[in-house]
């Protein structure tokens, strides 16, 4: 997901840069009040861990491998503000020292891979945890689901940015369906690995799992009983259901809506100005502007809501250490 330079338009790069700058600045301050003079060593070494964990190739299917993105993992282990900070440092270093991800793309890369995954992933974690048992298995399962969701949220964020900063005549619908579709599958791996990893940390040092620190230590004792195969099957099932819904949305025959759109003279102007920062590619190809906008708006609300919920959840929970 490390987008290179020029992948999105200039205006989008600048706007996402400003958002990321603000959120990272706020995270720096919030993490500082929580960690005090431990902030530098704990955040720095944790960032080294997340980076290293991304280097590990996990088996996916028939010998093919994938790797972790780690945003939700960082948020669940360290809290969303420290998590966002940790992944931001990883993304910046990957661009600066490893030439992975464009320097002018840092704004949206940071937003998608660090901020959306950490805050959105943590929001999903808090929400899912509420309906699961308050023990190690519940926390680990919630972590796994949240990690899968965080990856999908990140892909949705990139699609929405495409709506504003498209650099090619590919409609939002196509990008959305393709991005979300691919990342639903990636999310399965992310979720399973994250769930198992959090379970193993819970078994060794439950006090180190930020997302479980309000739970009774006694309830966390005893190893999480997760069936890895069951987890994979469950994740695939969720993916299948969500994927079907998404494809229904994106691929549904827009005849009715299209007519409405024409009536209202909302049909897209095919000759969008390529130089404009808000090139109108969103509606090229498929003439279902309203549906596109509805999907985009819905996804946008989900992401913003998730980030907000993540922030509120962080604030509201008792801040032990």
């Amino acid at each position: 997901m490390h987008a290179p330079d020029g992948f999105l338009g200039l205006g989008t790069a600048v706007a996402t840069g400003a958002i990321s700058f603000g959120v990272v600045g706020a995270s720096l301050r919030m993490a500082r009040t929580r960690l005090a003079d431990r902030q530098i060593p704990l955040t720095g070494v944790s960032a080294a861990f997340i980076f290293a964990a991304q280097l590990v190739n996990f088996p996916v299917a028939a010998g093919t491998t994938g790797h972790l993105l780690g945003g939700a993992l960082a948020a669940i282990l360290l809290g969303p503000t420290v998590g966002a900070l940790v992944v931001t440092v990883v993304v910046v270093v990957q661009a600066l020292v490893f030439a992975d991800g464009g320097l002018s793309a840092l704004g949206y890369n940071t937003l998608n891979m660090a901020i959306v995954t950490s805050f959105g992933g943590y929001a999903a974690f808090v929400a899912v945890r509420k309906i699961l048992p308050r023990n190690a298995s519940g926390v680990a399962t919630a972590a796994g689901l949240a990690a899968g969701i965080s990856v999908v949220l990140a892909s949705m964020a990139l699609s929405i940015e495409w709506l504003f900063g498209a650099t090619a005549p590919v409609s939002f619908d196509t990008v959305f369906a393709a991005m979300v579709g691919v990342h639903l599958l990636i999310g399965v791996g992310e979720g399973v690995i994250t769930g198992l990893l959090v379970a193993s940390v819970l078994a060794a040092r439950p006090d180190l799992v930020y997302g479980a620190r309000h739970l009774d230590p006694a309830a966390l004792r005893g190893r999480a009983s997760l069936s890895t195969r069951g987890l994979v099957i469950a994740a695939l099932a969720v993916t299948l259901v969500v994927g079907t819904i998404v494809s229904q949305f994106a691929g549904s025959d827009p005849d009715g809506l299209e007519r409405v759109a024409e009536d209202l003279e909302l049909t897209a102007d095919q000759a969008g100005d390529a130089r404009g920062p808000f090139a109108d590619y969103a509606v090229d190809g498929l003439d279902n502007e309203q549906l596109s906008l509805a999907i985009a708006a819905g996804a946008g609300i989900v992401i913003v809501g998730a980030i907000g919920y993540g922030l509120v959840a962080t604030r509201r929970e008792p801040s032990a250490v």
Partner: peptide, 11 residues
């Protein structure tokens, strides 16, 4: 070779 065999790695 398969995702459900990844437990030791995750541990």
């Amino acid at each position: 070779r398969w995702l459900w065999q990844a437990t030791p790695l995750a541990n």
